[in-house]
Design a protein around this nucleic acid. Structure first.
Lengths: 191, 191
DNA sequence: AAATATTTTTTGAATGATCATTTAAGTTTT
DNA sequence: AAAACTTAAATGATCATTCAAAAAATATTT
């Protein structure tokens, strides 16, 4: 029973601490000691659980990606039309617990650093491909073949851009407004 | 005459080397030695010219911002209509010598790190404000008051998102296609 | 239950490596 | 000669990671 408990608890604690610490100090310069302090643990324990700093970063990103994936899958249930599913993708990306300055900031940090880490790079590629295929599947039912790719590009770039702006924002962001705006952009793109 | 020559030459060389080195290694981890090697100089000489690593980074970003600003001002000459000027803003951002994987990658690095450096942060804010005001000036002549801000948001996010995608790309990107796509997005947004 | 053994978890301190910056001594240019 | 430029080497600081030993939890035996 208790076999896996502590390990799971620590994993979660350390990943949450990583998110906070990366947001606070920046991915490139955050130290193990800062993360450990945030979690109320020691730097050595991070290596005990994750093997290395890079291992921790990968686990943290994996955790965030999973959340996004789950949000998208949940959003799909109950949708009937392609348009509704496009809305759902947007809604998942701008969900209340994902579209915050802190989360967007983390994403941005990972994006910027993914090209220099094979492990992060791989995760990033997988996520991007999934979003892409979702968009393509729905858009191809709504537009002519030659319109699909430009429309996907427009939607996906818009989505990324909004996150990027949120990451730069010094005030807090409003998920509800973001979702409404995103719906309007979907409407624009599919005519 | 020659008073400033060498200094100017070294400044340029070191900034170019910084761009290459940051793209190659990442902003967070690139070392003075790597930049110096790229420029065929010594790490000590960078401090002689720029005072510190952060000074070099700021100068590099300032250099890139100036290029963008010049491209935008040049693009404006000869434009007659608001729509043409919106096209011009897009064309400047996706100009042949600015919209490359390498350049976009550098931008991305700076974006991600700006929040943690007051000097970078300041530059970033200035640039963003300029782009914003350009968009607003033109859009307010084409749309009703309540449509302006959503449209600006859509265009600016799209622009940022395209750069972000380019930064992640492993192939090279095509500026001409990007400009054409951007024009289409402008058309969509202003009806 | 108590005592003991075993495994898992935790961390302080050492290790070793990296790196920005400074300094002092040269070299080149003016 | 003076000023500007250049860099090798020294400095000092930071940090991820390792290690050994302790503490805590769990399992086993009495």
């Amino acid at each position: 029973m208790g076999r896996k408990r502590i390990r799971d608890i620590r994993n979660k604690e350390l990943i949450e601490a990583t998110i906070v610490a990366v947001h606070r100090h920046g991915y490139g310069v955050v130290t193990m000691a800062e993360i450990a302090q945030e979690a109320g643990a020691s730097a050595a324990s991070i290596n005990y659980y994750f093997g290395s700093k890079e291992g921790l970063m990968e686990a943290t990103m994996r955790h965030l990606l999973t959340k996004l994936k789950v949000a998208m899958i949940q959003g799909y249930t109950g949708t009937k039309t392609p348009k509704e599913r496009l809305y759902a993708v947007m809604d998942a990306n701008f969900a209340d617990d994902l579209y915050t300055v802190e989360r967007c900031s983390i994403w941005m940090q990972f994006w910027a650093n993914a090209p220099y880490s094979p492990r992060l790079s791989r995760l990033h590629r997988i996520n991007r491909a999934r979003v892409r295929s979702h968009f393509l599947a729905e858009l191809s039912q709504l537009l002519t073949a030659d319109q699909v790719e430009p429309a996907r590009q427009a939607l996906q770039c818009y989505m990324d851009g909004v996150w990027l702006q949120a990451a730069q924002s010094d005030q807090s962001v409003d998920p509800k407004t973001a979702r409404a705006a995103a719906h309007q952009v979907v409407d624009l793109v599919i005519r």
